[in-house]
């Protein structure tokens, strides 16, 4: 995978422009809140980069909203902040006007739709458990369980502090394959469509005859109807002929899943 290492860095550096506005339900009528513009890294999660947004809007909010858990919506849809920022962008804003306008809320947290991620502990726990799941799919004997605690921490802090080298120094071990065993057991992936729940299945990187499986093979297992769909991964419109093993090694998010956004044509 060393040949294509530049791709990893390019994807890591990807950012999306966001225009945060405060929901009209939250404002005290003293003064009209100023919007907040920021570039958000694709690989991170919203709860990890809202501290400044929060500080900015707190001065405009009503008394009751102060101190409440922040949540976001786009066009009336609450954003599942446990999906990476890039996934939410590809899913909801792929053809929206830029910057992407997101509404900030403090009251009426939709508990039946969103996970509570206000504390760093909650976000870290969610991230690490997703990463462990990907590891269990890829390897019969999991790698994460053989790592030291400090390696787990380095994965997390690498993501948290946006440090590519720090993260990949450990993540490399989760992505490595050998010449005698060049494939993962299963490919960790989830397929997303707007207004629908994500789909996750067991898919191998090679078929029974040892032929390399491609993105087209994966999509056929998820959507047997052969309909033509636009497929976006990490903001890139992906060729159906891309081999799954290569995709998993290079286009996974930090949680080690390939998050595939699919749009009806």
């Amino acid at each position: 995978m060393s040949d294509d290492r530049e791709i990893l860095r390019e994807l890591w550096n990807g950012q999306v422009p966001v225009h945060f506005v405060l929901s009209s339900d939250e404002t005290s009528n003293m003064e009209a809140p100023q919007p907040y513009f920021v570039l958000v890294p694709r690989q991170t999660y919203f709860p990890l980069c809202l501290d400044k947004v929060n500080r900015h809007f707190q001065k405009y909010t009503t008394q009751t909203a102060a101190g409440q858990e922040i949540w976001l919506d786009f066009d009336g849809t609450p954003l599942r902040m446990h999906y990476p920022v890039g996934v939410l962008f590809d899913l909801f804003a792929h053809d929206a006007l830029l910057p992407w306008t997101i509404t900030v809320h403090y009251s009426a947290f939709p508990e039946d739709e969103l996970i509570h991620l206000a504390s760093r502990d909650a976000m870290e726990s969610y991230f690490m458990s997703t990463l462990k799941e990907a590891d269990a799919l890829k390897h019969k004997v999991t790698i994460v369980s053989t790592m030291q605690k400090k390696d787990h921490k380095q994965l997390w802090t690498g993501l948290l502090n946006d440090r590519f080298d720090q993260f990949w120094a450990i993540n490399r071990k989760l992505m490595e394959v050998s010449s005698e065993n060049p494939y993962f057991r299963y490919i960790p992936f989830r397929v997303y469509q707007a207004d629908k729940s994500f789909i996750q299945k067991l898919v191998k990187p090679v078929d029974e005859e040892g032929r390399r499986q491609t993105l087209a093979d994966l999509l056929l297992q998820v959507f047997p109807d052969h309909q033509n769909r636009k497929v976006v991964i990490q903001g890139v419109k992906m060729s159906p002929q891309t081999p799954l093993q290569w995709l998993s090694e290079h286009f996974s998010y930090p949680d080690n899943f390939i998050h595939i956004c699919v749009h009806e044509k």
Partner: peptide, 15 residues
């Protein structure tokens, strides 16, 4: 936190 946390339901997709 490693033992018990909130996730998206793998089948029903609610928290």
């Amino acid at each position: 936190w490693e033992t018990l946390s909130q996730i998206e339901h793998p089948i029903l997709h609610c928290p």
